[in-house]
């Protein structure tokens, strides 16, 4: 019987295909999150790869979940935090920002005092957020801050969703968000502005 030259890749294999179809709708989202969490393409791919390896044996659990995306994000978030903690313990793998380890704990509310009317990041944040400065500041944020800002400010997850996803209280979550914005504002304020051609937004706020 003559074989037709259909490329082998056209035929997916059994379990692989099932798994693929389960995760496929979420892969772009997960990769985008991973890139924002980690800050680099290589580490983003590593994180997504590790996630897929981790959840592959849990296909049955994944298939039974009504809304798999938050579940996948939660698993990836935990893996990322575990990796960061592991790297933070390694003398050879410094992390971008300091004070990381204490910020994942929900023991007490480490930021309980920061939410309120005191001048905060919303007041301190300069308006001229040009692309280059923002990219540099983003890379210097600690991973927890990148995660929080990614999920809340960029991807638009609600506080209620994040309470479940990150397993923390509303108050702790808001405090961590506040701290993340404060840190971003600090980093931006300590940088020289880039040229006007690279301004991301309007020019009105350079204070």
């Amino acid at each position: 019987m003559e074989k037709n030259p259909i490329p082998p890749s056209i035929a997916l294999r059994a379990a692989q295909a099932q798994f693929y179809e389960l995760v496929r709708p979420h892969l772009d989202h997960l990769h985008r999150l991973a890139h924002r969490f980690t800050g680099t393409a290589d580490r983003a791919e590593d994180l997504v790869q590790d996630l897929l390896v981790r959840i592959y044996p849990r296909c049955d659990e994944l298939a039974s979940i009504e809304q798999p995306r938050p579940w996948l994000v939660r698993v990836m978030y935990r893996m990322f935090i575990d990796q960061v903690r592991h790297n933070a313990r390694s003398p050879h793998m410094p992390i971008a920002d300091s004070g990381l380890a204490n910020e994942y704990t929900d023991d007490g509310d480490p930021y309980a005092d920061v939410a309120g009317t005191a001048p905060g990041p919303d007041d301190e944040l300069e308006m001229h957020l040009d692309r280059e400065r923002l990219t540099r500041a983003w890379s210097q944020l600690n991973p927890d801050h990148r995660v929080l800002l990614t999920l809340f400010e960029i991807e638009g997850y609600t506080l209620s969703e994040l309470e479940v996803m990150l397993e923390c209280t509303r108050g702790t979550l808001k405090s961590r968000l506040h701290r993340a914005r404060s840190r971003l504002a600090e980093l931006l304020s300590g940088m020289e502005p880039s040229g006007p051609s690279e301004r991301v937004k309007d020019e009105r706020g350079g204070k």
Binding site: A15, Q16, F19, Y56, C59
Partner: peptide, 12 residues
Amino acid sequence: IALARQSGPSRF
């Protein structure tokens, strides 16, 4: 996905 598949059995 191929690597994930090679990494362990599925309980699907």
